[in-house]
Design a protein around this nucleic acid. Structure first.
Lengths: 178, 178
DNA sequence: CCCCCCATAGACCATATGGTCTAGACCATA
DNA sequence: TATGGTCTAGACCATATGGTCTATGGGGGG
């Protein structure tokens, strides 16, 4: 069990990230998080004095880092921007297929809904910025615009995929961008 | 007061549609809906025996019809598809600016979150179909693709606008589509 | 060896929530 | 005026929820 080596705090954050992503802020109870993380209530409020909202912030930060890692993994080995975009779309399609909680963008479900809406924009912006940097590196003429277009379309595809219960829209992302 | 003329059932549906759109399914309590609609509890469960879920279905249907009306109002007077799209984007930007509950797509907040996810796809599809019909009428060569692209991008822009607390992404929609 | 402190453990609490149930108002028809 | 059904009205209930509080364990420094 790898769980044994993970700190209580991290187990809470991971469980929260997954559950919030899957069922949303209001749709997830602290009791569920505690049960998933196998942690008693006292520990939660020791590590996260502000309770649920605090937990959501930590979960969002963790999820955001995961997104940055995925972007890097998609574009780093790519020869041009379109190639990286294709890899990115495929990655999200695979996650969508394999893990229930990846049926929605982490931040969309996580923050838009709860009392933390203001914290959402900066995270999303870091993803766009990271993508723009890759676009610039790969020789795109208007990297900011390319990154904005990508993320706008990606979020739309993700929502559509979820509504249709089918990753096809995510896979269609590269062709829809043209 | 126009409220006096509206049936209890419709007042409930309207209040529910607005609140669900604004705060989501799980973030809205039946008590809030009742208070907004000025209706006692007994009436709710008389008109909507299945309670909250039933109310959400009715609200979704009403919201969906509003969306179809907006699509028609945007494209009917347009001379070409791009012109209609520009009108559509501007309409949503205005709604976003003026009414708190229009800060999110009705169905996205309304259904994706709750126990009615399966009901979401058909509604969204009617919007895409209506848009595709307009695209065909206005001489687009690939109307289905144009409509799909439009709605994907629109949903993405909407989410971005909400995250940034600024309708600018919605207004940028027409240029992002190129 | 003892003490202290960080962290765990979970009982406990006030409130919010979705839903049920009975009583009565209203209205059309007989 | 009596009667039946429809709709309004809100008291009431069981449960879920977020959060607090006290007690305990256990490992490192004196």
């Amino acid at each position: 069990m790898s769980d044994a080596q993970i700190s209580t705090r991290d187990r809470l954050t991971q469980a929260a990230a997954r559950l919030f992503q899957e069922t949303g802020y209001n749709g997830t109870s602290v009791a569920e998080v505690l049960a998933t993380a196998q942690v008693p209530k006292g520990s939660l409020y020791h590590h996260f004095p502000d309770g649920k909202a605090d937990l959501a912030r930590a979960a969002a930060a963790m999820a955001s880092q995961v997104m940055l890692d995925i972007v890097a993994a998609a574009y780093d080995p790519a020869d041009d921007f379109a190639h990286g975009t294709a890899r990115l779309a495929e990655k999200f399609a695979r996650l969508f297929e394999r893990h229930p909680h990846w049926r929605a963008c982490p931040v969309q479900t996580l923050l838009l809904e709860g009392p933390l809406a203001a914290d959402t924009a900066p995270l999303l912006q870091t993803w766009i910025d990271a993508t723009a940097a890759q676009a610039a590196r790969l020789g795109q003429t208007a990297p900011d615009r390319a990154a904005t277009r990508l993320w706008t379309m990606l979020i739309g595809c993700w929502t559509l995929a979820r509504a249709q219960d089918d990753p096809a829209p995510l896979r269609a992302l590269p062709t829809l961008l043209n």
